[in-house]
Amino acid sequence: MNDQQLLRYARHILLDELGIEGQEQFLAARVLVVGAGGLGSPAALYLATAGVGSITLADDDNVELSNLQRQILHVEASVGRPKAESGRDTLAAYNPETQVNARVERLEGVVLGEAVAAADVILDCTDNFATRHAINRACVQHRKPLVSGAAIRFDGQISVYDLRHDDAPCYHCLFPEADDVEEVNCATTGVFAPLVGIIGAMQAAEALKLLAGVGESLSGRLLWLDVRTMQWRSVNVSRDPECAVCGHREHSVAAA
């Protein structure tokens, strides 16, 4: 690190658990953030300001006025712009050293797999089950750690699926994919603005912990927050040996 970086990241370097070595791991890291909305905004901001070297920010949507209530990557002048590009510019203003790759597209199929394979940690900041399950399948295939968050109304949840470990559950273990799942989203049910900030910031924290190997991640646990009462619940999550996605993880990885 140069003198400017030593000064910028001094408060991280002072932490015994991180130090210079941990900060250098951040600087060398590649993180994929899927979704530049309510969750992706605070998550990407904290990753960039923490010094993550490379962030891929993927979102195929444009900024709308109704987004500004909670999506803090964007300002009123961003309305009409692609969220990924607006987010890239905001992150550059906070930390020009972080390289941000704006992907104005919905990552799917081979393209999604390639983006996951190229990252050290993946953050799912999306708002629909189909995309969540697609990201999970790619993370299982490439044995990449996934930090998944969700927020709706006054309720939030977050977990880590550290698919580098054989005994870790995947997203499908906890939320099996089904055709009859009712989709809910902020556009139809609303969301309390600070809630996405809380969950998104926690996603960034979990991602940074994974990158530096610090502390204990949320792998194997799901946290639920009811922000009306500020009550947290923690649920232990085990791997489903019959899971259709990761049940034969070792065999699929060996064959890949």
Rank of each mutant, 00 (worst) to 15 (best):
H74E: 07
E114H: 14
A102H: 10
V116C: 01
S78N: 15
C246V: 09
V104I: 10
L7W: 13
E182T: 06
G109E: 06
T229S: 14
G80F: 09
A256W: 13
L57I: 05
D3V: 14
R132W: 12
N95T: 01
R11I: 08
V75P: 03
D166M: 00
C139N: 05
P96K: 07
V214S: 07
E206A: 11
L218T: 06
D16P: 11
V79W: 10
I20N: 07
G53D: 12
Q157A: 13
S252V: 14
A256Y: 15
I20S: 13
R88F: 05
G213N: 03
H172I: 04
V191R: 03
Q69M: 02
V110N: 15
R8N: 04
I152C: 09
L218E: 09
N101S: 05
A134Q: 02
D179T: 04
L65N: 06
L123F: 13
A151L: 05
V227Y: 15
D89W: 04
S159I: 03
Y94T: 11
R30A: 12
L6F: 13
D3F: 12
P145C: 07
R132T: 13
V191P: 01
V100Q: 13
I135T: 04
G190H: 03
D61S: 05
R88I: 05
S54I: 07
S238L: 05
R221Q: 01
V181A: 15
C186P: 02
V79F: 10
A92P: 10
A244Y: 00
G53Y: 03
D240L: 00
R30G: 06
V33N: 01
L174V: 08
C125T: 05
S78V: 08
L208A: 07
L222D: 00
S148M: 05
D120H: 15
A205E: 12
V181N: 10
H142R: 10
T49R: 11
Q71F: 05
I198S: 07
D16I: 10
V253T: 11
P176K: 02
F129H: 06
G200P: 08
F192R: 09
R81E: 15
D162H: 00
R81G: 13
R239D: 00
Q25M: 11
M1Q: 12
V214N: 11
L222E: 01
H165S: 00
N2D: 10
E17D: 09
C170V: 00
F192W: 08
V196H: 05
R106Q: 12
V227C: 15
L91R: 05
L91A: 02
H74M: 10
L91S: 07
V34Y: 07
L225K: 01
Q4I: 11
W232V: 01
R30C: 08
Y161Q: 01
L208C: 04
Q69Y: 03
E242T: 11
V63G: 06
A204V: 11
F154A: 04
A119H: 07
V237S: 00
